[in-house]
Design a protein around this nucleic acid. Structure first.
Length: 808
RNA sequence: GCCGGGGUGGCGAAAUGGUAGACGCAAGGGCCUUAAGAGCCCUCGGUCCAAAAGACCAUGCGAGUUCGAGUCUCGCCCCCGGCACCA
């Protein structure tokens, strides 16, 4: 065998498969469900970023199996998506063909890396047997009123010809191509995720997500408590008499306590549009012109901070607190989808309002006592200029004024309902039929799945209709309700649909009668550990929690939260410290690493590269360090001749097993690898202390991280009978049951005087303080400082002894 | 502005309040080899010192708690990620 090369281990992969070492079944205690986000099967194959998450979690899964857990570690493909569709547009090759090919290639990669997936549970979101249930869930949501169609302004990418959810628009630009999105009105399916906002928030308290992930979700949901306040619009007629047709402007505020300081009301152009007819003639033209100009701007232009613009509508509103008449303005800075699109202007206590008031010379009335007068004060304090609330603390006043009916307590969210329609081919058809008589009717469940029909042209249309709209014989159908002529929905679901419930399907992937058997769900759920990209925190992770909660509500899943622990891996940058990309030429191909250094080198380097959650930089030199380590332990293991080694070696190994276990548990993969290296260094210096028994323990500990090398060495050190049977190292138990014997292990103790280390001293772990003290005081460099002085002694066994010289 | 995470050698980084820099890389020196590759051994935060011993300095800055602080507390500075004309 070539000593400079690690085998890729095809032989082992086959044997492990034959033995079905990684198959998960529902018949044992102590289940663990370990999940990594399933990938999109792209033509680029799996990259080193995938490998990081997969290899690290694979080590956890393997370790848990050795500890006796029944581990479900499944894999699949989130295969609907744009690249396959774009490829089809270019070449005419059906996306399912491209997808199949990509899946085959990527599967081979995953197997080459030694990932211990249970392949019998492999799923694919584009499989009709799978998306049948994606559609089924949509129908259930429709039945419960959570899926609805509405004409709404959507984010439209003029290049991709696709509508996007707010979550998909990054910095005003299309997530896919970077073109600035524009707003346009289109009839879209929406999912009412906002109805679950509070529960998505509360649920976070019951799970163990990493704190930054939970915080980001809280942020995104953006719950704000405040009050809605009705400002009556005074017109010529209402000024004269009470009128049941009174018009009101409803503003949302978190600071109802500043209500007496309101000196104007500002409304968003979209809101103003609906009031245009009430505007007095003298101002009508100017106001309409302003609104028109504002509505023509893109979302991005609108949000670009610049000069204050706005126009007085000439309308007058009444402050419900004191009946004061205040002007109604319209201004671009007020967004229609934030709060109610109506802002009460309190320039004394809000920076944005103050700016506006200064620009347009509107009055400023302070109503919260601040340190100095005449300046902006946004904090809490005592109320002034506020009638009977004067002197009251602002926090108290908020409660009291709401109680007194000046406003209605109300909650707003940053979270919006989920725009669920896409005008693309390669997605799940939305299983709905529109009948002129009956309206929207879901496809009956026994007719699911609504399969994607073949099309000639994959290109979306300029009108924004899906390519499916071209296929008349598919579009035209009969109403399941009345049998009359009807049309199918031609939009498809977004990418996020199939991934919103796949973790459930893994529990029962071949079930034709339901999305998953409830007993199996009950056995496997929740996912104990779910790892994925940080970029999915506000998208996939929130969507899938929402779907799960809905399925819980209709009794399909047994628990309200799908994932117990959620973690996230950091991005791997190219060695030039920049994001890996083809155009920069800094992409590392994991397959090349595997063929040159072996899969174990890739695996252990991915673990060693840095703290798991942190962004890291790829370094080929550092990878070679791992490679050297693996070659070295092979030499060490092969050089082991005698059967049993020393007690100290045994004890060190037991300690190592505990340490590695602890590191894998808290996902400190880098220090786990370091601990293995540290042990190997010790081994190199104490070869006589390591016998075959000890070497075998070491190999077991190595097995989760480097399964190929461990198997190779295990087979070599195995007895003849085991060799014949091929008993795998991956069937062995974790060796930490060996008690760490606390016998006279020598430790180096730090001897301090007044907290400064003055000497090091050999000692035994079990040594008593008195013995250590006497010995330490003999040391010259200690005697030098302590001689003839009174000392207080602080002794930490095995660590430190500190002589603190008293002053007297 | 709000929320979250950070700041430690030439570099990636370690460190339940207890020897700061484990482990790896790079660098320097040596061995082996005809050579290359691979491997093996030694040195490796700074200052003082010929060197050793030893002393002092050192975990973004400044205080504090403690016998003892990279770690805890308070006040700053800077970097990264998320959100934001958010009412």
């Amino acid at each position: 065998m070539n000593k400079n090369k690690l085998e890729t281990g095809q032989g082992f992969i086959r044997k492990w498969e034959e033995k079905q070492l990684y198959k998960a079944e529902e018949n044992k205690n102590n289940k663990k469900y370990i999940l990594i986000e399933f990938p999109y099967p792209s033509g680029e194959r799996l990259h080193v970023g995938h490998a990081r998450s997969y290899c690290c979690l694979d080590a956890v899964a393997r370790w848990l199996r050795m500890k006796g857990s029944n581990v479900l570690f499944p894999f699949g493909w989130d295969a609907f998506g744009l690249p396959a569709e774009n490829y089809a547009i270019k070449t005419g090759v059906h996306p399912s063909v491209t997808t199949r090919e990509n899946i085959d290639n990527s599967s081979k990669q995953a197997k080459d890396w030694g990932l211990s997936f249970d392949w019998s549970r492999e799923i694919n979101t584009t499989d009709p047997g799978y998306y049948k249930w994606t559609q089924w869930i949509f129908v259930q949501m429709f039945k419960k009123g959570l899926a609805y169609k509405a004409e709404i302004p959507v984010n439209w990418c003029p290049s991709c010809k696709i509508n996007q959810a707010n979550e998909e628009v990054i910095d005003g630009k299309c997530e896919r191509c970077g073109t600035p999105v524009t707003r346009r009105n289109q009839s879209q399916w929406l999912l009412a995720i906002t109805k679950y906002a509070d529960r998505l928030l509360d649920g976070l308290k019951t799970v163990n997500y990493r704190s930054d992930i939970a915080a980001q979700q809280v942020n995104w949901i953006g719950r704000k408590e405040g009050a809605q306040i009705r400002f009556k619009i005074l017109t010529q007629s209402t000024l004269r008499e009470q009128n049941s047709n009174d018009k009101y402007l409803e503003a949302f505020t978190t600071r109802i306590d500043t209500l007496f300081g309101v000196t104007f009301v500002v409304i968003a152009p979209e809101v103003a549009d609906t009031l245009a007819e009430m505007v007095p003639e003298s101002r009508k033209e100017e106001v309409k012109e302003y609104i028109r100009a504002a509505l023509n701007k893109s979302e991005r232009e609108r949000k670009q901070k610049k000069e204050n613009t706005g126009v007085d509508t000439g309308l007058v509103a009444e402050n419900p607190a004191d009946g004061k008449k205040i002007p109604v303005w319209v201004a671009e800075y007020v967004m229609t989808d934030v709060g109610t699109g109506v802002v009460m202007g309190v320039p004394a206590h809000d920076a944005r309002d103050l700016e506006f008031a200064r620009t347009f010379k509107l009055p400023v009335i302070p109503v919260i006592e601040a340190g100095r007068s005449g300046e902006l004060y946004e904090g809490e304090g005592k109320l002034v200029n506020s009638g009977r609330y004067n002197g009251m603390d602002s926090i108290l006043a908020r409660r009291q004024m709401t109680k007194d009916g000046l406003g209605k307590s109300s909650v707003t969210y940053h979270l919006r309902d989920w725009v669920f329609s896409r005008q693309h081919y390669w997605g799940e058809p939305i299983p709905m039929i529109e009948c002129k008589k009956c309206g929207w009717v879901p496809v009956p469940e026994n007719q699911l799945p609504v399969k994607l029909p073949e099309v000639e042209k994959y290109l979306p249309t300029d009108t924004g209709e899906s390519p499916l709209a071209h296929i008349e014989e598919w579009v035209n159908t009969t109403c399941p309700n009345c049998g009359g002529p009807a049309e199918r929905e031609t939009d498809t679901m977004p990418n996020w649909a199939g991934s919103s419930w796949y973790f459930l399907r893994f529990c029962d992937p071949h079930n034709d009668n339901q999305l998953a058997d409830k007993k199996k769900l009950k056995y496997w759920l929740p996912v104990d550990l779910y790892n994925g990209g940080m970029e999915h925190t506000t998208l996939h992770l929130l969507y899938s929690r929402f779907w799960h909660k809905f399925l819980f509500d209709i009794g399909v899943v047994p628990i309200p939260e799908p994932f117990d622990k959620r973690t996230s891996h950091g991005v791997i940058l190219g060695s030039d410290n920049r994001k890996m990309s083809k155009s920069r030429g800094n992409v590392i191909n994991p397959d090349e690493i595997v063929s040159k250094y072996g899969a174990d080198t890739l695996r252990m380097y991915e673990m060693f590269i840095g703290p798991f959650e942190q962004t890291v930089v790829w370094s080929i030199e550092s990878l070679e360090g791992v490679y050297r380590f693996l070659k070295r332990i092979r030499v060490l293991a092969e050089g082991t001749g005698h059967k049993s080694g020393s007690e100290e070696a045994g004890s060190k190994l037991a300690e190592l097993a505990v340490r590695i276990g602890r590191d894998l548990e808290v996902m400190k993969f880098n220090t786990a690898v370091a601990a293995m290296m540290e042990f190997a260094n010790w081994w190199g210096e104490h070869k006589a202390e390591m016998g075959i028994d000890e070497a075998r323990d070491f190999i077991k500990i190595l097995a989760p991280m480097a399964p190929f090398m461990a198997e190779e060495l295990w087979q070599r050190l195995n007895g003849e009978s085991d060799k014949k049977m091929f008993v795998s190292v991956h069937q062995q138990g974790w060796p930490e049951s060996t008690v760490v014997r606390d016998f006279n292990i020598t430790v180096t103790l730090a001897v301090q005087v007044n907290g400064k280390v003055r000497a090091l001293m050999e000692s035994h772990k079990a040594d008593e303080e008195e013995r250590v003290r006497e010995k330490a005081l003999q040391l010259e460099n200690v005697r030098k400082y302590t001689e003839g002085k009174k000392c207080k002694v602080i002794f930490v066994p095995g660590k430190v002894i500190n002589f603190v010289i008293s002053d007297d």
